[in-house]
Computed example of a mutant assay.
Amino acid sequence: MGTTLFRYTDLPIGDRAAFELVCARHGYAPVHFDISASAKAGEPAHERLVTVRRAGWTQSYRDLHGQWIRQFEADLTCRFFK
């Protein structure tokens, strides 16, 4: 079984909109981050792994129906990506 890689623009529109709102709340723009996602063949889309990179910092989140955005915001609140 292979793995499919996705870019930010391949994510669902709702996830992208929520990500943009989270970024704006914390003084960032989506372009400040490199977003990629991967999913194993045959797995549901909501089980993909989303990876966020910024300035040498990398964090990966399980999608879990958009939960990755809440986890990402928690990391921004903790200043993980500063």
Rank of each mutant, 00 (worst) to 15 (best):
G14T: 08
V22G: 04
E47Y: 05
R70P: 07
R62G: 06
F19C: 13
W68P: 06
D15Y: 14
T51Q: 10
K40T: 13
A41K: 11
T9R: 14
R53G: 00
R54C: 04
G14Q: 08
A17C: 01
D75I: 04
R62V: 10
S36C: 06
D10T: 04
T58Q: 15
I69H: 04
P12H: 01
I35P: 01
H46Q: 06
R53M: 01
V22C: 07
R25H: 09
A17R: 15
D75G: 02
K40R: 13
R7G: 01
H26D: 08
G56A: 07
F19E: 13
C23Y: 12
L5R: 02
T58S: 14
H65T: 09
S60N: 09
W57F: 11
V22T: 15
E73Q: 15
R62I: 06
V31D: 14
Y28I: 05
D63K: 02
P12Y: 00
V31F: 08
F81A: 02
F19L: 15
D34Q: 08
G42W: 00
T51A: 05
K82N: 11
A74E: 15
P30F: 00
E43P: 02
Y28N: 00
D15L: 06
T51P: 00
A18M: 11
A74V: 12
A39S: 12
T77H: 06
